[in-house]
Amino acid sequence: MSATYIARSTAVAARRLGDEMVVMSALDSTLFSLSDVAAVLWESADGRTPLDQIVRDRVCSSYDVDHPTALRDAEEFVRALAAHGILFVSEQPIEAPGAQAAAASGSPR
């Protein structure tokens, strides 16, 4: 199975608020509130660490969930965020998420 890499778009505003992460897309102003676990995935989305490893090292080690279940949920989650253009998902490491975000944000709405 190929690896999945995730990188945050730079066309967002994001901040921790207590146990959640608030994210707003600069593309369409959609506001997201990410739960504690989702926030861990978001913060770990550096484009270089495979999702599988993020789930094992940062989710399963801290939350009471088995790896296959957590990975399945995480994949669903990252694809949902990708559909909104605030996260990039690739089978290759993502070197410059900022550049991709800028390109993504360059076209007029």
Binding site: A11, A26, G106
Partner: peptide, 8 residues
Amino acid sequence: LRSLGVEQ
């Protein structure tokens, strides 16, 4: 401003 992601 758009490429910087200024929202409004």
